[in-house]
Simulated assay, not measured.
Amino acid sequence: MNIQLLQWGLVSFTIGLILSLPLAAVYYDNSPPWAKIFNNPRKLKSAHTDFFMQAFAAGFVYLLEWAAKSEFPLFIVIPLIFGTICNPLILLIEATSLYRSGFAAIFYRFLKSTSPVSLLFAWLAISVYFLPLYLMLFLLLLVLTGLLIIWSCKRKVITEA
C-alpha cells in the first residue's frame, strides 16, 4: 500500500486545522493584522475546507488500495499527492494579495496550470482502474450531458447578444 497517501493526507488535514486559526481571526475577531494578510476571507474559508476534502480523498484512495489488495502505480499516486496539497494551496494564495506580483505570482500560475490537471488525471486513472464498464459509460454520459448543456447555453447567449 502507498502509505504516502495517508501521510500526505495527514499533512493536508493538519494544514486545514492550522488554517482554522487565521480563519477565526478574520471572521470572528475582525483582527486587522490578519485581515491585512488574508484580504479575501472567502478564499481562506475555501482553502480551509479544501485541505480537509483533499485529506479525505487521499484516505479514500488508500482505502481503495487496501480493499483491492493492490497498489496503485506511481503515475497515479504522484499526481494525486501533488494535487492533494497544491490544489488547496491555490486557494490559500488567492486569499492573500501575493498572487499578483513577484515570485509568488509565478508560483501561483504554475500551480494553477498544473495542479487541477494532475488531480483530474489521477482521478480519471483511478476510475479506469476500478470502475466496471457500465459505470464508466454512465460517467461518460454525464460528462457529455454537461458539455451539451454548456454548449447549448453558450449558443443561446451568443444568439441573444
Rank of each mutant, 00 (worst) to 15 (best):
A68G: 09
K69N: 11
W66C: 02
L44R: 04
D50E: 11
L64V: 15
K45A: 10
Y28A: 15
K36L: 10
L64E: 05
N30L: 14
N40F: 04
A47G: 10
S31T: 07
A67D: 13
F56P: 01
A67M: 14
F52H: 01
S46H: 12
L44M: 04
H48L: 12
A68P: 01
Q54F: 07
A35R: 09
F51A: 08
K43G: 01
A67C: 08
F56R: 03
V26P: 04
A35P: 08
P33K: 13
A57I: 04
W66I: 01
S46N: 15
F56N: 04
A68H: 03
D50G: 05
N39K: 13
G59L: 03
F60W: 10
F56I: 01
W66N: 10
Y62P: 04
W34F: 12
P33C: 10
F56V: 00
A35W: 04
K43D: 13
F38Q: 05
A57D: 07
P32V: 01
E65A: 09
L44W: 06
N39I: 15
Y27K: 13
N30F: 15
W34H: 12
N40E: 07
A67P: 04
F52E: 02
I37A: 06
N39A: 14
G59F: 01
Y27V: 13
W34S: 00
F38S: 03
E65V: 02
K69L: 00
T49K: 10
R42S: 07
V26N: 10
L63V: 07
Q54M: 15
M53N: 02
E65K: 06
A55N: 08
K36T: 05
W34V: 08
Y62S: 09
A47L: 11
W66H: 13
A55I: 02
P41Q: 08
S46L: 14
R42H: 10
V26M: 00
L44C: 02
A58I: 05
N30M: 13
T49S: 02
E71W: 02
S31M: 00
S31K: 03
D29Y: 09
S70P: 04
R42I: 10
D29Q: 14
T49Q: 10
T49F: 09
F56H: 01
K45D: 11
N30G: 11
G59V: 08
K69Y: 05
G59A: 06
L64Y: 04
F51W: 03
H48K: 13
Q54P: 05
F52W: 12
A68L: 09
L64C: 12
L44S: 00
A68K: 10
K45V: 06
F52T: 00
V61N: 02
L64P: 07
A67N: 13
I37F: 07
L64D: 03
